Amino acid sequence: MSRAQTYKEGEAAASQQAESNTGSKVRSERVALLLLSALLAAAAIVIYRLSFAHFQTNKNLQMLKDENEAMRKNLTEKLSELSSCTSEQLIRPKPAEAKTTGLCPTCEPGWDQHGGSCYYFSSDKLTWDQSRSDCKRRGADLVQINSEEEQRFLDNKVGRKMTYFLDWFWIGLTDSKEEGRWLWVDDSPLNTSLSFWDKNQPDNWTGENPAGEHCASMGVQGGATDLKSCYDRSCNVPQRRICEKAAKTG
């Protein structure tokens, strides 16, 4: 074999070896790339799952907070309703009576007890005069608000019962006898320090009735933060109502 031929064969062998090495290197790089892609995909899946778990945890936490707040409000309301049975508010019989135990105020089914009164919140709607007649038929009258604490109780109750913005409740206040002179159903004048008119109320608007607005109603969905939830309205508009009567003792 000539020297030239031997050189060519060696060169060919070297070339094949180089190609083999190059192929091995490419395959190694492909394997490494596939492994890296797999690791990135796995990492993306882990990150997604962790993110979803974090989102779900925050969502569950918010639900628990909302439930806790609702339970707190309900407990506060129940404690308020039961406050009449504290030692300071027990209704005690006169010394002439042969009794020494205190008696708690109670209300019949369908009425809400607060302090020494029972309150009926209607679901049907009547005019102001019809509402008052219905309250009297039940042994009561349209509600008369005598304190900020009572207004807070009523505002909270009404705010939770309302289904839309104008779903108001009649109360026992009117200026039908004399414009601007607001009287309760027992003819006592409205105490200006205990008036809970909303902003720009009363305004005696004539849009619903040319005769104006001479009866008072109340209601803010969810309750009014400042207790200002009273409005004047035409007495002829059917609305829900709040009746009030003294609680029974027993």
Rank of each mutant, 00 (worst) to 15 (best):
Q89E: 00
L90Y: 00
I91M: 02
R92Y: 02
E97I: 13
E97W: 09
T100L: 15
T100V: 14
T101H: 14
G102N: 09
L103P: 04
P105C: 12
C107E: 12
C107T: 08
E108K: 13
E108R: 15
E108I: 14
P109E: 11
P109K: 06
G110R: 07
Q113L: 07
H114P: 00
G115R: 04
S117Q: 07
S122A: 04
S123F: 05
D124S: 15
K125A: 12
K125G: 06
L126K: 15
L126Q: 14
L126W: 11
T127N: 09
T127A: 12
W128K: 13
W128C: 12
Q130K: 12
R132P: 01
R132I: 05
C135A: 04
K136R: 10
R137L: 06
R137W: 00
R138L: 13
G139E: 05
A140W: 01
A140F: 02
D141I: 07
D141F: 08
Q144F: 00
N146W: 14
Q151D: 05
F153E: 02
D155W: 01
K157P: 06
G159E: 05
G159M: 04
G159I: 04
K161W: 09
K161T: 11
T163K: 10
T163S: 07
Y164H: 11
F165L: 01
L166Y: 02
L166H: 04
L166I: 05
D167T: 00
D167Q: 01
W168R: 05
G172H: 05
L173R: 07
L173W: 07
T174I: 07
T174F: 08
S176M: 10
S176P: 01
E178H: 13
E178C: 12
W182P: 02
V185S: 13
V185E: 09
P189C: 02
N191A: 07
T192E: 15
L194N: 07
L194K: 05
W197C: 08
D198I: 00
Q201C: 02
P202D: 04
T206E: 15
N209V: 05
P210A: 03
